[in-house]
Design a protein around this nucleic acid. Structure first.
Lengths: 292, 292
DNA sequence: AACAGTCATAAGAGGTGCTTATATGAAAAC
DNA sequence: GTTTTCATATAAGCACCTCTTATGACTGTT
């Protein structure tokens, strides 16, 4: 750049009004300032931009050509500023959330609905994947937020718990159940569990291992939603998340088995690259779900 | 604009280098300046643009979006400045010249050739028209320069003579001619003259009228070049411009008749909207023809 | 542990881009 | 022909703002 960019703004307005004094009024500066600015600009660019006429000024041929360029530059800047404003007011933008099926459908869904209702202009993109992949997406900037089962730790990410969840065992509503079960008794049930690689399963295994108990499920499945379905058709005892199963528990399809001691609670958490790098939309979504 | 435009330039470079300190080096300012600038920019726009990381900075989502706009703005400005430079060095641009046939072919042609040889990148556009129209074109900015027969006066235009010309009478080389002719004798010749509306004809008529002589040509034509052609095939005596007829006079097709007193000399002139509004190319052309 | 990077912050100086005031010039009004 | 009015140009000075320098805080590296 050969000159101060602000000069171009003045040049732009002056050219549009074809008058130093009129431009001065619109820019809320003195006519003298314009005169000095244009002179400086002409000196810097080493070319005459305006011809001073009796009734104002007019662009020279070269000024005209420059104006075209400056005009598009100014318009681009104005577009940019305008866009920022819309982003700020959540009148535009997009939000990419990465999460697994279970969390999406049982936890996020109502929030997504609410968020979309509040800010319909924000395009929401859901990336369905397993937790390590969702975290990866956040790191790579491919997702704004990832919701995962805790505990997870990653030095590069901010991770905050946002919902405490409880793992419980359930079986078909018609099953005879004892008033309470020890962990050993549970282990002997025909278990329906998630795959070993899932965070929930690892959490479960770890707890039982700590008591010297190895879980050998009868059925292993990948999709969380199938746990309850399987349990409800009497295929066995499923380990599910209480908070995600309220409907089925209430409707009487399945019932909770009282395990003593209960498994320790864990949490669902939200991961993001850093408080500062959160987009306005993402921040706003976090606020909605109460994770600050 | 919500902020100083110069901030955007710094923002632009900083974003490109993804580092305050690196950008500082390239901009030849201190790292501190960048830091302050970006802070101010973020304050002005009320949005976080960079996330500060361990090894430099990275654009936020919003920053990224803004960057796209700013980038095109900066590129537009750079294009503009670059274009001006090319215009200045006559490496681009265009030059529109308005003039009549005769002046174009007998006077301008060699200059056009020279100019084009010197600045081949300049697109030359010739607008062929009668003098009042050429002047109009200059006033409307449709032409940079107009070349016309003087005298012409126009308050809105700068008009400078650039070549003195002499009206002479010629006839076929085989004609018997007297050593000299009075104006009355000339008037009795079978004259071949331009149309009445032409400047040259008006000049001629006015001179003869001042002596009480009315010219009644045998042949009236619109195209200057035909004057000599007609005279050379013995159709009569033509009034031509000596400077434009050198070839034919030398080649012996026609010969000059000695008129006493000779018609007063007049000039070809160049008209333009104003010294200050001349494009670089136009200025340069004027310099070439020696009209300064 | 010391170092070599990063960005942030504080304080101060210098420059520059305003302001006001005045000059200049040309067209319009009288 | 004056005078008025409306343009831009110029001069001088001041206030602010944007740099610089210096330092701090923090991280990852050697």
């Amino acid at each position: 750049m050969k000159t101060k960019l602000d000069y171009y703004r003045i040049f732009y307005e002056t050219a549009r009004f074809a008058s130093f004094s009129t431009a001065a009024q619109h820019l809320y500066i003195s006519q003298s300032a314009i005169s000095q600015c244009i002179r400086q600009l002409e000196t810097d660019l080493n070319i005459r931009l305006f011809t001073r006429t009796r009734r104002g000024v007019a662009l020279t041929k070269e000024g005209e050509l420059l104006f075209q360029k400056i005009e598009s530059a100014m318009q681009a800047i104005e577009q940019g500023e305008h866009m920022l404003e819309r982003l700020q007011h959540l009148e535009s933008g997009e939000l990419t959330i990465a999460a697994g099926d279970a969390i999406t459908s049982h936890y996020l869904l109502p929030y997504l609905e609410k968020f979309h209702a509040a800010y319909p202009q924000i395009r929401i993109e859901m990336a369905n994947s397993y937790s390590s992949r969702t975290l990866q997406m956040v790191k790579e900037g491919k997702a704004d937020l990832a919701f995962i089962n805790l505990p997870v730790s990653d030095a590069d990410l901010c991770i905050e718990p946002c919902l405490e969840i409880h793992d419980i065992f359930v079986c078909n509503a018609d099953c005879d159940i004892k008033p309470s079960y020890t962990w050993n008794e549970i282990a002997k049930q025909p278990l329906i569990l998630l795959e070993k690689k899932s965070t929930s399963r690892r959490f479960l295994d770890k707890n039982f291992e700590s008591q010297g108990i190895t879980l050998t499920p009868q059925i292993e499945i990948a999709a969380y939603d199938l746990l309850i379905r399987f349990a409800s058709i009497q295929l066995g005892t499923a380990c599910v998340i209480e908070e995600f199963s309220k409907e089925s528990l209430q409707s009487g399809n399945i019932k909770k088995m009282n395990v003593v001691p209960a498994l320790p609670p864990r949490s669902i958490g939200c991961a993001y690259a850093g408080r500062d790098s959160l987009s306005v939309a993402a921040k706003s979504f976090l606020k909605l779900i109460g994770a600050v």
